[in-house]
Write a protein that binds this DNA or RNA. Structure first.
Length: 838
RNA sequence: GCCGGAGUGGCGGAAUUGGCAUACGCGAUCGACUCAAAAUCGAUUGCCCUUGCGGGCUUGAGGGUUCGAGUCCCUCCUCCGGCACCA
């Protein structure tokens, strides 16, 4: 008997799948398309091809592939494509360091991913493969940009932006983590630059409302997105500065505290600041303060325990509710990016305003009493954030603040001094990057078409796409895109007037590329359009999306925004791209995140070589619930390998000992131990099927198959030789192969072929026979006062009275009833008897 | 601070509707095979008391509901993740 040699088995089946193009599926209208077959779009997030695949990739694709295989065998036409998110900084930084063009490193990495995906045996429809850095792909990224531009959803403006000095590029807010560049960790500084934005804020409400359209997303991902969008309801209230004749609107969520406003604060970046202090004694100090703040990093400014700073402006505004004049300040705790960049400060009921008031000795006024007497009398109970009756608020005194809220807003509105308002934390998506390795933004600037000396933005016509990246020598950014140095490329002809024009030299954020790739898969080689509408309508939405939780906000929200914008532009019929989302947990080693510097990385390739892909795949699915992550151990890998070896050896033995094989279906007639084994197989089918359908309980699916294999080992020697016994062992082994196939497709295919014949993936997923799931007897649990005292084999159909009689007859139970009175009898038929004694 | 999630053997974890806690795997111990080792096969393995039979305890802590709670309710503790001067 030979040992389990995964190399030979895996090579054999990988060859079959490659030659027969097993996992390719047709689009509507193509040969072989079956309109009656339900579709399922199973998609894992496409990899970023940098270096070699790591364990996170293995897990993601092993999990997705298990789902794809299960759905195929459940009768779905499964589309399961693959591609590469191949633009972006790592390849470009490598180019700067080594001089090697980014294409070269990128394509080398792609080749490595392709090879490993095949070696892992992932069931990919290779006919739909794409890479976002190819002109065939980014031509359509540019095309989408132009559609957004037409709709006013892509615009260029001068704005203070987050700038990473090391990468010498602008970052999206989402790419700034704790005031540092997400990629390189350098402290981010603010700069004012002309940049391209996508108007995602137009979709804030729909992005929130349409969570209702999703079938199943992890709650925490929805919460993270909801927090990120950060919708607040409140009011806009106008404060007027009579001295300079300017109105200052503020956003507040607490119009009920308006009577408690005792000062007014502008953000250091506020555009009217200059005008307010020009030529006044405050001018010097204000300018100094603003400059100081401007030099600070986002991290310094955002620090938690930072003391409040600010400078008085020597001006005042009028509180519209009571006519009081309150002094104006500039302070960096007010952010220009949120609301109007100005606030009314209510130190009695806001902790930040309170801190500022204490430091600058400003009046603190209570306008809402505490709910209980104690708090109301306590002068030190400020700032008070809670609810209660209003005080010091004119005609609203005595009313509950919640009730007064609407009334105050309505009153302000009738006076023309305010209105209900909604604010979002979400800001527009900054998409331009001063980098080389990205899709060029397809516009040109034409002086002749412009006005007032300003060049006009002229979109490149669709038929001139793609605007291809020129080859360049020096990839290092110099504060502007390296593309600016490609003078021959930059100088072009205006598509509108035919005169000289200059190309936009910024490229697009790579998140733009990955915001629509799942649509391109559906029609990946279309040279006439981004996609065929019928193909997109057929396959979308993605039925199951799988990926790391690190994309919970960025990628997923951008893709949702793109889908909605493209639907609005008449290009798609769905509002949400991903009906079901699964976020996998991270695999650690020695309890820590894997990193090269820590030296605890796991190379999937090494394990595949040593134990085979089936072992590696099954192991990552067996470690624990896949959403939770887990710690990689070599012992664990060996345990799974041992299990697969056991299945393999069982197959070889069964093949030899049960001859050509009993008649299929013969196992249904089995009795005794043979019936026990057949019943166990049906139990495993039932358990595996239910756990698959429940979600991603792969660890328990695999453990059920392990139990089946264990029982087969336990019973087989007593069954060989008898026709029923042979059939039972053969059936049990083949069933184990069939059930493990989604995780270990090579071994599953091989064992199935040897014992049953044919291709296991062409067989429907097995169905459990209900008759074999139940048995004539059950184990009756007998408790006394809720404590287990005996287990008795009882007829499944026994009546309550019969069960009670059986329970009382037990010697073990009797001991605990001795000399006591039974006051209550609980009987759950088919399960348990509980006798309550006193 | 706010919002999520999780606490079960030596370890990863299981427990479907409130009904056998600890499935499956790892590790460990013992046995078979072997000259020996590895591999393999088999047995044992929550904790405490007991020679044994057996008994008691046990799902982060404390309380509650119930005949019965890992599961439901209340209070608290710890850990992980996200957001955070967002008015």
């Amino acid at each position: 008997m030979s040992g389990y040699d995964p190399t030979a088995i895996e090579r054999k089946w990988q060859q079959v799948w490659a030659e027969e193009k097993t996992w390719e599926v047709p689009n509507p209208g193509q040969p072989g398309f079956d309109p009656d077959k339900p579709k399922s779009y199973v998609l894992e997030m496409l990899p970023y091809p940098s270096g070699e695949p790591h364990v996170g990739h293995l897990k993601c694709y092993a999990v997705g592939d298990a789902i794809a295989h299960f759905r195929r065998r459940q009768g779905f036409e499964v589309i399961h494509p693959m591609g590469y998110d191949s633009f972006g900084l790592p390849a470009e930084n490598n180019a700067i360091k080594t001089g090697e063009p980014p294409q070269v490193a990128t394509e080398r990495s792609i080749a490595s991913f392709q090879r490993q995906f095949r070696e892992w045996g992932i069931s990919i429809d290779w006919s739909r493969e794409l890479a976002t850095h190819t002109p065939e792909y980014y031509r359509w990224t540019q095309w989408i940009f132009l559609r957004l531009f037409e709709k006013g959803l892509a615009y260029r403006t001068e704005a203070p932006v987050q700038w990473c000095p090391k990468d010498a590029t602008v970052l999206a807010n989402e790419q700034v983590v704790d005031g540092r560049c997400e990629r390189c960790g350098t402290e981010v500084v603010q700069r004012k630059l002309w940049q391209w934005f996508f108007k995602i804020t137009d979709y804030a409400d729909r992005l929130l409302a349409d969570f209702d359209r999703l079938e199943s997303w992890p709650e925490n991902v929805i919460t993270m997105q909801r927090n990120w969008i950060g919708r607040s309801e409140g009011a806009e209230v106008v404060f007027r500065c009579e001295e300079v004749g300017l109105d200052f609107p503020v956003f507040t969520t607490r119009p009920d505290t308006l009577f408690g406003a005792t000062f007014f604060v502008l953000a250091p970046e506020h555009p009217e600041l200059e005008r307010l202090v020009a030529g006044t004694p405050a001018e010097e100090a204000v300018r100094e303060y603003v400059n100081r703040v401007g030099r600070e990093s986002a991290e310094e400014r955002g620090a938690e325990d930072r003391e409040k700073t600010g400078v008085p402006l020597g001006r005042s505004v009028v509180n519209p509710v009571n006519g009081e004049e309150i002094p104006m300040y500039v302070a960096d705790y007010v952010l220009m990016e949120y609301g109007t960049g100005a606030i009314m400060a209510v130190p009695g009921h806001d902790s930040r305003d309170y801190e500022f008031a204490r430091k600058f000795e400003l009046p603190i006024k209570r306008v809402i009493e505490g709910e209980d007497e104690e708090a109301a009398r306590d002068e030190q109970g400020l700032p008070y954030p809670g609810d209660g009756p209003m005080t010091g608020s004119g005609r609203f005194d005595g009313q509950g603040n919640r009730e007064a809220y609407e009334e105050i807003v309505a009153w302000l509105e009738s006076e023309g001094r305010g209105k209900p308002a909604v604010n979002y934390r979400l800001r527009d998506w900054l998409v331009s990057r001063q980098r080389y390795w990205g899709a060029p933004i397809p516009v040109v600037y034409c002086e002749a078409c412009g006005e007032d000396g300003e060049a006009a933005i002229v979109p490149v016509p669709d038929e001139q796409l793609p605007v291809e990246l020129p080859a360049i020598e020096d990839y290092a950014p110099q504060g502007k895109s390296p593309l600016a140095a490609a003078e021959e490329w930059v100088a072009t002809e205006c598509p509108r007037c035919g005169g000289p024009a200059r190309r936009e030299t910024d490229t697009m954020d790579t998140f733009v590329d990955s915001s629509w790739y799942f649509i391109r898969y559906l029609d990946a080689h279309n040279g006439e359009a981004a996609w065929d509408r019928a193909a997109a309508d057929h396959w979308l939405a993605v039925d199951q999306y799988i990926g790391g939780v690190e994309h919970a906000i960025l990628h997923l929200m951008y893709a949702r925004f793109f889908t909605k914008a493209l639907a609005d532009a008449g290009q798609l019929s769905v509002q949400e791209p991903f009906a079901n989302l699964f976020a996998q947990g991270m695999i650690t080693r020695d309890g820590a995140k894997m990193s090269k510097s820590r030296g605890n990385t796991v190379s999937p390739g090494d394990y595949v070589e040593r134990y085979g892909a089936d072992t590696a795949r099954t192991y990552v699915c067996f470690m624990g619930p896949p959403e939770r992550g887990g710690d990689w151990t070599d012992e664990g890998v060996e345990g799974v390998n041992r299990f697969l070896s056991r299945l393999w050896r069982l197959c070889e033995e069964v093949e030899g000992r049960t001859g050509a094989g009993p008649e299929p279906g013969a196992e249904a007639e089995a009795e005794g131990a043979a019936r026990e084994l057949v019943a166990k197989a049906h139990w495993a089918i039932d358990k595996a099927t239910r756990d698959f359908q429940r979600g991603f309980q792969f660890n328990t699916v695999i453990s059920a198959v392990m139990e089946l294999v264990n029982d087969t080992y336990r019973l087989k020697d007593g069954l060989y030789g008898d026709p029923q016994g042979d059939a039972a062992v053969r059936f049990a082994t083949a069933t184990a192969a069939s059930l493990i196939f989604p995780f270990a497709p090579h071994l599953g295919s091989e064992v199935h072929e040897r014992l049953v014949g044919g291709r296991v993936w062409e067989r429907p997923w097995p169905e459990a026979d209900p008759a074999l799931l139940s048995s004539d007897t059950v184990t009756l649990i007998v408790q006394v006062n809720g404590k287990l005292r005996d287990r008795i084999e009882a007829p499944a159909a026994a009546s309550k009275e019969e069960l009670l009689e059986l329970a009382r007859a037990s010697e073990k139970v009797g001991k605990h009833l001795d000399g006591k009175e039974v006051v209550k009898e609980i009987v759950v038929p088919g399960k348990l008897v509980n006798l309550v004694v006193r």
